[in-house]
Design a protein around this nucleic acid. Structure first.
Lengths: 234, 234
DNA sequence: ATTACTAAGCAACGAGTAG
DNA sequence: TCTACTCGTTGCTTAGTAA
């Protein structure tokens, strides 16, 4: 049972917002469309820090690969790196994109039964009840979506189930999203789970409901279904 | 001669990127569309800092007015404040808006002749020459634009003229942008200046060129002109 | 003018713990 | 469980200065 750590955020140190001051300043002064000639002291006066601090911040942002540096005729010039632009694009997308009404196509797959194990843990179970007001059926329905499901769900407000530790074992947090599952004309309200530690990738959705979804809808592995993130259940 | 400090960036401490980690995490977990239930320890595990640090960061972001806090059924809930959303919107604009081909309508106004004084300072003059390759005529043409000119120009890559100090006097930095000035069919390539310290507001554009623009175009106070930011002169 | 070093001060961090 | 306190340590920031 190898659990992978899901990256809710990028790797520390290489996240653009670890160097947000430098990146934002560069963007504000045109560093998105080309190299900007800027000295440590100028950056310092804009960010209201010393020349030394500003120079250091710049070097570190360059080291982290978020800012590109070159030598111009009148000193060093900097621009926002393509790597940082990529991260920014994703972030801005979250900001500007209206909540999409997406019906994710997905195929029912079989889990390994560990969903039951986790749901039985008081640390998780109590939180689910508190947040959603129902005692979940002790088993998850696993779907393999046709695309990256987490990227779709994460645009919605998550209800966070906090992690905890029992004895010497740590259990990670779980991002949960209210969802609707469709099979033909049948509709089930449920909750999608994206655990911090999971055996699955971002295209797998684990669903819970107050009852066995499989039995209620009469589905088996391989059945095609549609799943949609929603703002709230009920 | 009262010089106002132009705000290139927002006030320190109340800038969203001073709390970028918290704001970004909140956005990533849906805090844009409503309150998100999140504990210090959860935020900590996402940002890879301790529970204490995460709680502190949250409180500080709340104090700064960037994050709103409320008490939910299962603990505190947070959302990105409208104040922060405003800052983010402006930032996103810089990022997503294509460089607009704007012709700013403006009226020629008379300055107080201090343009000449600043241009004569070696600290500025040498940098202008180095960057733009011409010795500026010792006087600025001042325009009062019909809208906030700085907000338009700042979408373009700026060439920064660094500040300096002579004796005990400090001279702030100047953001400069290549521009084109139009009067009827006549066109002049010039450079727009937005000094850190200025007597004017963001709707006033100070222009320099290798020659006297006023004489070349035969204009006087009150003449209507059009000014357009461009990527480069020549 | 610039960047970058060192030393001293101070703010932020994590560990432990209380409420 | 949570938040929030203290405290010792770490690491960032600044001033001064060299190159």
């Amino acid at each position: 049972m190898v659990a992978l750590k899901r990256k809710f955020l990028d790797e520390s140190g290489k996240r653009w917002f670890d160097h947000a001051d430098v990146v934002v300043a560069l963007v504000e002064f045109g560093g998105l469309h080309g190299y900007v000639r800027i000295s440590g002291s100028s950056l310092g006066s804009m960010l209201e820090v010393s020349q030394q601090a500003a120079s250091r911040k710049l070097s570190r942002a360059v080291e982290a690969g978020l800012v590109d540096k070159r030598t111009g005729s009148a000193g060093f010039e900097y621009t926002v790196s393509e790597f940082a632009r990529g991260q920014l694009r994703r972030f801005l997308n979250l900001f500007t994109a209206p909540l999409p009404r997406v019906e994710l196509g997905a195929t029912v797959v079989s889990g390994v039964g560990e969903g039951r194990f986790f749901l039985e843990l008081r640390g998780y179970g109590r939180q689910f009840e508190l947040i959603y007001g129902f005692k979940p059926y002790l088993g998850t329905l696993n779907l393999k979506a046709d695309q990256n499901a987490f990227d779709v769900f994460r645009m919605y407000p998550s209800k966070i189930v906090n992690g905890f530790r029992t004895g010497n074992r740590r259990f990670g947090l779980v991002l949960t999203y209210p969802a609707i599952l469709r099979l033909g004309s049948q509709v089930v309200e449920c909750v999608a789970l994206f655990p911090e530690y999971s055996r699955y990738g971002d295209d797998v959705v684990e669903l819970i409901a107050p009852f066995s979804i499989k039995k209620k809808l009469g589905i088996a592995d391989g059945t095609r279904v549609l799943v949609t993130p929603v703002l709230s259940v009920g």
